[in-house]
Each structure stands twice: as C-alpha cells, then as structure tokens.
Computed example of a mutant assay.
Amino acid sequence: MRAGLLDDGGDHLAFRHDLLRQAVYVDIPPSARKALHREAAHHLVSAGHQPIDAVPHILRGALHGDEEAVALLERAADDVLSVTPGLAADLMTRALDLVPPALPLRFTVGERTILSLTRAGRNREALSAGDRLLAGRPSPEAFSRLQAALGGALWNMDLAGELRRRAETALAMGGAAPEIGARLAALHALALSRDHDLVAAREAGETALRAATAVGDREAHILALSGLGEIAQNAGENAVAQWRDTQGLAS
C-alpha cells in the first residue's frame, strides 16, 4: 500500500490499476501461480460461491488428474447446461482432458461430455469423443453407457444404420444397467423406424416402451415414445405419430 500498488476499500484490498495486477501476476513462478489459482477456486466454493464463479481459477490452476477440479467443472456444467449448453460442453471437455486414461472416472466423465456436446449441437465432436473413449476398452457397463450416450448424436447426424449397429452390439454384449439397457432398446427401435419392416420396428418400440416403464427411466421412456412416433409417421399414421409426440413431451 505504501508503494501505491494496492488500495484498501474497507472490505477488501484491490490493485490500484489492472496493469499493476498483471505485472505482479506475471512475476509469480508458473507453479506457484497454478497453486494460487487452485487455492482461490477452493476458497470461492468454500465461501458459498457457485462453481461457475470458480471456473476461471480452475481452468488456470487444475493439474492433470485433479479430481476435485473435475468435480467442480462437472457441477459448473450442470448449472449452465439449460441456459448455455455450449459453455457446458466446453467445461465438460476440459474436465475430460484432466482425467488420466487409466482411471474408470474417465468413462463416467466421458459419458457426460458426450451428452453435453450433443445438447450443444456439436454432434461430430460428441461422436469423436465417444469413439476415443471406446478405444480405451471400457468395461461392458461403461461400453453400454457410452453407446447409449452416443445415440442422440448419431440420430441427429442421420446415421440410423450406425445407431442400429451400435445399439445391437451393446445389447448383445450385456452387462448394462437396467435403465441403460432400456435406453439402448429404445434407441434400437428408433433406428428401426428408418427400416422397411415397420411391423418389426413397432414390435421393438412397444417392447422398449414396456422396458422403460418397468425400470422407470424417463430418458428411456421418451426415446421409446420418439421411436414409436417416428414409426407411426413413416407408416402414414400421422394422428398416432402426433399422439406419441404429445406423450413424449408430457414425459
């Protein structure tokens, strides 16, 4: 303060000018700078601030394998997903970069990254991220989760044949949790809506809907209704398709 660098505002100290702050900042060794950013992020969250407020410090201070930073980025992404999905996708992509390939956490974070990228309309990025994760030889359960997460991107990219192949592969492998199995069955029915055999597609859709209802999974329920709506529309049953769409929206 005597040197004229800082002012005392009563509640906190502040640099008198941003150029002074930058000059001090660049003079701090990079390792110490990262440590200070990590401390700042931890302090902000501990003091009751939202994780999104700590994101600038997390991005500057996080180290590879920093699970606390990954968790904070996930929470921040959740907070902004409905308003700014693009930002949420960026945060989840950064979180995924921080997780070493050997950790099982990578597949959990990867699943959420795929869903965020798809929500943001970045389908090719979602598919690319998913295929990189699948190349890491995940467990059967993680494999099924990743394939189910990729369903939206594949459908948005009009890759119904690829969606069908992946869903069938994951279902045949087994090991999926009940709700993931129901989602895969619904995605399979959705892919079959583009097939010529709409009778078989409808049977698959009804089976998927029963499975979704049995496990009580909302995502699987919506997917099954979407598939049945697509099947009805392709069969020329527009009234049925509209009713299925209404059911899906109500879910």
Rank of each mutant, 00 (worst) to 15 (best):
A54V: 13
A54D: 05
A54I: 12
A54R: 09
V55G: 04
V55L: 01
V55S: 08
V55W: 02
P56R: 07
P56D: 12
P56H: 06
P56I: 02
H57N: 08
H57G: 09
H57L: 08
H57V: 05
H57K: 02
H57E: 07
I58S: 08
I58C: 07
I58D: 08
L59N: 03
L59R: 09
L59F: 11
L59H: 10
R60H: 14
R60Q: 12
G61E: 03
G61Q: 10
G61V: 00
G61H: 13
G61K: 00
A62D: 04
L63Y: 09
L63P: 03
L63K: 13
H64I: 14
H64E: 15
H64T: 14
H64P: 08
H64W: 14
G65C: 14
D66N: 09
D66I: 15
D66M: 14
D66P: 11
D66W: 07
E67G: 13
E67H: 13
E68H: 14
E68K: 15
A69G: 11
A69D: 03
A69C: 11
A69T: 06
V70R: 00
V70L: 04
V70W: 00
V70F: 06
V70E: 00
A71V: 08
A71C: 13
A71P: 08
A71Y: 04
A71W: 00
A71K: 10
L72D: 06
L72A: 10
L72N: 06
L72K: 01
E74P: 05
E74C: 13
E74Y: 12
E74F: 08
R75H: 12
R75D: 00
R75Y: 08
R75A: 12
A76C: 09
A76Y: 06
A76R: 00
A76V: 01
A77T: 12
A77C: 10
A77I: 05
D78W: 05
D78R: 14
D79H: 13
D79Y: 12
D79G: 09
D79N: 06
V80W: 07
V80Y: 01
V80G: 02
V80S: 02
L81I: 05
L81G: 00
L81H: 01
L81P: 01
S82V: 09
V83C: 10
V83H: 09
T84V: 08
T84R: 12
T84C: 13
T84N: 15
T84Y: 11
P85V: 03
L87P: 04
A88G: 09
A88F: 09
A88T: 04
A89R: 00
A89D: 05
A89V: 04
D90K: 08
D90V: 06
